[in-house]
Design a protein around this nucleic acid. Structure first.
Ligand code: MN
Ligand code: MN
Ligand code: MN
Ligand code: MN
Lengths: 234, 234
DNA sequence: TATCTATGTTTGACTACCCTAACAAATAAC
DNA sequence: GTTATTTGTTAGGGTAGTCAAACATAGATA
C-alpha cells in the first residue's frame, strides 16, 4: 500500500508518458506536473526507486517499472470509473468530475472498485472519452485523430478531448459540443489556422489550439476501428 | 478544511460522547478509540483547541465546541450515506461497509454528498439502523430500547445494532437476524441472563452481551414514536 | 493528612513530505 | 573545445503526526 502522495507520483509519471508520447521523463517535468519543486520530486523518486516502482540512473531519465506502470493504471482505472459514476449517476457535469475523482481515486478497496465497475455496467470510456482500463489493466484502444486533421467539407464525430481543464471543457460545452457530436468542417483558414465548423446547424470558428484538443473519428468510421483509408480525412 | 487526522479526532470525540452518553471525554479514552498513545492525542487536542473545535482546561475533561460538533456531524453524515450507498447499490454486506466508509467519509465535496443523498432518495437510516443527519445536521430521533428490556412472551422488531464490529454483525446475520426482523422472546434465564428467542420459526439462545447490542421497538409500536406505555415492554 | 494510583502533560526523537539555496552533471551554444 | 545554460542532486531545515519516557496533577485509599 503506497501513500496518497506516492500514488500521485506514479500516476503523474504515467500520465506524462502517455500525454507526451515519451517513455522517459525528467525530474523537472515531473515536479512541474505535481506542482512541487524538483528537489522534492527527487527525494520521492529515490524512495520509489528503492521500492522498485521506478527505474533510473543518477542524472538520467525516469521510467516506471512494470510494477509501477501496473499500479499507475490501477489508479487511472479508479479515477475514470469514479468520473463516470459522478457524471452518469450523480448529475455532475463533465468539467466537475475530475476534481472529485482526484480524491476518490485513492480509496483502497478492490471490492469497491470492481462493484462500482459492475454497477456502471463496465463502461469502456469515461466522460471525457478516455478509455477505462479493465480489472486486468487492459485498455480498449481506438483509432482517433484531431479535428485539425479533418479536411474542409468533411464531417466527423467527436470521441474525446485531449485537454481536461475546466476552462476548456466548459468552453466546449458552451459551443454545443460534446462526446458523439457530429462536427462538419465548413472551411479552414490558412491565415490563422482556424477552423470553421458547424454543429447542430450552428456555425462557429475555433482556433488551432482548440481544434488540436478535440479528438474525432470520421463520420463513416466505426468506433474503435481504423479508418478505411488509413487516415481519417474524408 | 481540516486534515484527515483532525477529522478523525472530532468524529471520535462525538462518537464517544454519543455511545457513552457522556458530555465530557478524557485524553486516555480518546487515545484508545483512535489507537494512538495519550501523548499523541494530547498534542492534537492542543491544536484542535487552538482552532476552537474543542474546549477544555489543562488536566480537565474535553468537550466539542458547537463548531466541532457541527463538523463531526457532517463527517458522520458522510460516513452513513456512504455505508448506505455501498449496501444498497454495490451489494456490500452490512459488515463490510464500515471499513470502506472510514475512507470515503473524508472526501471533500459538498456537492458530492448532497447528490449522493438525493441519489439514495434521502435515506433516514444507515444499514446498521443508525440515523443519517440531513444537510443541516438534523437527526431523526426514534424511540428504541434493547432486546434485554423485552419481557418473556413479547415480540419486538429489530431496528438497529449498538455494536458495529464485523464479528458481531456477522454473528447477527448468521442467526437470521437483521433490521426489521421480528424477534419473539421465548424465555429469559435468570441463571446466566441469557435470552431464548425465536426468529422466523427458529429458536436460539443469546447472551446478555448479545441482547444488549440489539436495539428493538415493541411489535405494536410505530417506528419513531414512543411506546404507548412509555417503556417498550409488552 | 499522607500516600498511592490513575490520568494527563511535556520533552525529545522519528518518519513523511515539502522547501530554499548551493552544487554537480549534461547539454547546447559559440 | 570552451563556455553558458539547462537539468538534476545534495544539504539543511520546516511542519504534521506519531511514539517512549519522564514528569505533574487529581482523585482514591488508607
Ligand atoms: Mn480526470
Ligand atoms: Mn477523464
Ligand atoms: Mn460505520
Ligand atoms: Mn453504520
Amino acid at each position: 500500500m503506497l501513500s496518497f502522495t506516492e500514488e500521485n507520483y506514479l500516476k503523474a509519471l504515467h500520465n506524462i508518458s502517455e500525454a507526451e508520447g515519451v517513455d522517459l521523463v525528467g525530474t523537472n517535468r515531473l515536479a512541474a506536473a505535481l506542482q512541487v519543486k524538483p528537489a522534492t520530486a527527487n527525494d520521492m523518486l529515490k524512495k520509489l526507486k528503492e521500492k522498485s516502482y521506478v527505474a533510473y540512473e543518477k542524472y538520467g531519465k525516469i521510467k516506471l517499472t512494470d510494477a509501477g506502470a501496473q499500479y499507475a493504471v490501477a489508479i487511472i482505472r479508479k479515477h475514470r470509473l469514479w468520473e463516470t459514476f459522478l457524471y452518469q449517476k450523480l448529475e455532475f457535469s463533465w468539467d466537475e468530475v475530475h476534481e472529485v475523482a482526484e480524491q476518490l481515486e485513492h480509496i483502497q478497496s478492490e471490492k469497491l472498485i470492481d462493484k462500482l465497475d459492475k454497477f456502471l455496467a463496465y463502461p469502456a470510456f469515461d466522460p471525457h472519452g478516455d478509455p477505462i482500463p479493465n480489472q486486468k489493466g487492459a485498455i480498449k484502444v481506438r483509432f482517433k485523430t484531431t479535428l485539425l486533421d479533418v479536411a474542409a467539407g468533411a464531417s466527423c464525430r467527436m470521441v474525446a478531448v485531449k485537454d481536461n481543464s475546466k476552462l476548456f471543457l466548459q468552453y466546449v460545452a458552451n459551443l454545443g459540443l460534446g462526446l458523439n457530436a457530429i462536427i462538419k468542417v465548413v472551411a479552414k483558414q490558412d491565415y490563422d489556422a482556424s477552423t470553421q465548423i458547424e454543429v447542430a446547424g450552428k456555425q462557429t470558428s475555433v482556433s488551432e489550439k482548440f481544434a488540436s484538443n478535440i479528438f474525432v473519428i470520421c463520420n463513416t468510421c466505426k468506433v474503435g476501428q481504423p479508418c478505411p483509408g488509413l487516415r481519417c480525412q474524408v
